[in-house]
Design a protein around this nucleic acid. Structure first.
Length: 560
RNA sequence: UGGCCCAUGGUGUAAUUGGCAACACUCCGGUUUUUGGUACCGUCAUUCAAGGUUCGAGUCCUUGUGGGCCAACCA
């Protein structure tokens, strides 16, 4: 992860300026604050990259803080998944914190606000309070409970805490300004009653602090210097500051909130709520379904931490709305895997080829280079015999000059093998080609150095010996949504754009040594793309996921 | 009708803070290649508009236009 003379993003400029204005470097402290109500997704990768990147850049601590103030939505499963994903991405947090660690402190501070006449208990219905809130263009009106005595507020708040009230009947509100142009300043709720067990504090509390009351104070408790969140929290900054004003001690670091734009990826959604819906409705099998833009989904799909880092690094951090094309993500995984993934051969849509002049029953093991990009990758042996599979689309009875593949009367090279010539083919009753008869040139063996082996032929095909091939389940993925920005249509729900054909399961035939492939192994099926072994894979049944295809300039020519 | 934020190629981000618009991806064209992969080369923007300040504006000011956000006992 190099930091070599790269231009700074606007956040880094802010930090640099603070440093120039004599903010002590040793006071720099950051945090990554997910709510454990779902799995991390590619959008979080940018936030992680930002916060942990700053930590690395300035050698400052970065806390992992779980924003766990809503027991109705949060679970230990999500805490575990988030920790696993951050670690997998390669980052190390300073300390693991929970907003729930601060419930007592927050409560004590709330008591102070009540005593200072800055907070009050309201027992109106949510509808009544909503009405009094006004609209963005119309000032709100004061709650009839706004001027309760301190004594009464204290008593009521205590009863809230003691569980004397039902959910939805009482809240604690900050007394700010019902006429503010910022809706969030119109006496925001600090506490609500929730008779729910919390995954960490269990039933210790039945009142839970709201986000606004919790977040800034948590930053303050942890002495976070720079607190970053996404743009939709921009309006919360005023409230963040107001709450901080109530407890701030001048001798301590005062956290500052700054907002950056959430990264949107084309043809998918990046919102835990929406991703949760895909899981709940069975559109995908799980949070780590390889079609999901979650970190765990990308991992299972075959993405590497390096590729995700490079992606977040190139898309950067800024403030404007964006829709990042998936090609930027796909480039990064191709780029990384090109350098590290061993090349193998596998046929996914088989067509039988018989080499009529190759002796029956004979076989030989040919040398095959593991990775032309890596001199240390070495080579392996692949079996060759009279009956082979090639891809159906690699043979045509006749075709124009642009078709560099097998056609009747023409030659191609079999990768690492021989040059073959198509002589004839047989069809079934429906006219489908089911077998191609070829002859091979025995002197053209790859690497033999003979004159024949040096002949230039138009195309090179991958293939597999039928007798030796191992079968595997191959899962092919397409984009999850047919629309590039499924959740931005006002009149349509994002679920309307789910691609019904995002998953295709087929059978593939692979060169035999792949039988030893282990879960998580990543390979390139030559001429097809990058694949990895899925966790569903067993010794009896191999399962591969297609991570991404190779760039395919033939597909573009074929379209024309 | 109020407030806040944003505007640089098809996409994303830069521009030494007022000094020759750069990088990556995509697209298109080409070279190399026993992967139609990789690698390499080339083409693609006078910075939303109109004014203003200035020797000089993507950068500062004004107005306009366009887009996003703000009224959950969610975060």
């Amino acid at each position: 992860m190099s930091e070599t003379s790269k231009s700074l993003n606007f956040i880094e400029h802010i930090v640099e300026e603070d440093l120039r204005n004599s903010f002590p470097k040793e006071n720099l402290r950051f945090r990554f604050p997910p709510e454990p109500n779902g799995y991390l997704h590619i959008g979080h990768a940018s936030s992680i990259y930002l916060n942990f990147g700053l930590g690395l850049r300035y050698n400052a601590p970065v806390n992992l803080r779980f924003d766990d103030t809503n027991p109705a939505k949060e679970e230990q499963e999500f805490v575990d998944a988030i920790k696993r994903d951050v670690e997998w991405l390669g980052y190390t947090w300073d300390t693991e914190r929970y907003a729930s660690d601060y419930f007592q402190q927050l409560y004590d501070w709330a008591l102070i606000l009540i005593k200072e006449g800055k907070a009050y208990v309201d027992d109106q219905s949510s509808e009544e309070m909503a009405t009094q809130k006004g609209t963005p263009t119309q000032a709100g009106t004061n709650s009839p409970n706004r001027n309760r005595s301190v004594k009464e507020n204290l008593a009521l708040f205590n009863q809230m805490k003691e569980g004397k009230f039902e959910e939805g009947t009482h809240v604690l509100r900050a007394k700010i300004d019902m006429t503010s142009s910022n809706m969030l300043m119109r006496d925001p709720i600090m506490y609500r009653v929730l008779h729910k067990a919390h995954h960490r504090t269990n039933t210790d509390w039945c009142i839970y602090p709201m986000y606004d009351w919790t977040h800034g104070e948590s930053d303050y408790i942890e002495q976070v210097s720079h607190s970053f969140c996404t743009l939709e929290f921009a309006m919360h900054r005023e409230l963040y500051d107001w709450f901080l004003d109530q407890v701030y001690d001048e001798n301590k670091v005062r956290p500052r909130q700054r907002e950056f734009a959430r990264r949107n990826l084309s043809h998918t959604v990046v919102s835990k709520r929406k991703l949760a819906k895909l899981v709940e409705t069975g559109v995908v099998s799980s949070w780590d379904d390889p079609r999901m833009p979650t970190i765990s989904g990308l991992r299972r799909r075959g993405y590497t931490p390096e590729s995700i880092y490079n992606f977040t690094d190139t898309i950067g951090i800024a403030k404007r709305d964006n829709l990042i094309d998936v090609s930027l993500l796909e480039f990064q995984i191709r780029n990384h895997l090109n350098k590290v993934a061993p090349r193998v051969m596998g046929v996914l849509d088989p067509l039988k080829v018989v080499l009529t002049n190759y002796p029956e029953g004979e076989e030989e093991w040919l040398d095959a280079e593991n990775n032309p990009e890596d001199d240390n990758a070495g080579s392996r042996k692949v079996p060759f015999s009279r009956e082979l599979y090639i891809e159906k689309e690699d043979f045509r009875e006749e075709a124009n000059k642009k078709f560099f593949r097998l056609k009747l009367g023409k030659e191609v090279r079999l990768k690492n093998g021989y040059i073959i010539k198509a002589e004839s083919c047989t069809k079934d009753t429906d006219g489908n080609i089911i077998e191609v008869q070829c002859t091979y040139d025995p002197k053209s063996k790859s690497g033999s150095g003979t004159e024949e082996s040096l002949r230039k032929v138009k195309g090179t095909l991958h293939w597999v010996s039928i007798k030796h091939a191992v079968e595997a389940e191959i899962r092919l993925y397409d984009r999850l949504f047919t629309d590039e920005s499924p959740d931005t249509h006002k009149e349509k729900d994002f679920m309307d754009f789910v691609n019904p054909d995002s998953l295709q399961v087929i059978k593939g035939y692979l060169e035999p040594h792949l039988k030893e492939a282990k879960i998580g192994d990543r390979v390139q099926f030559q001429r097809l793309g990058y694949f990895c072994v899925d966790p569903d894979s067993t010794t009896e049944k191999l399962v591969f996921n297609k991570t991404v295809g190779l760039r395919d300039s033939w597909a573009k020519i074929a379209e024309k």
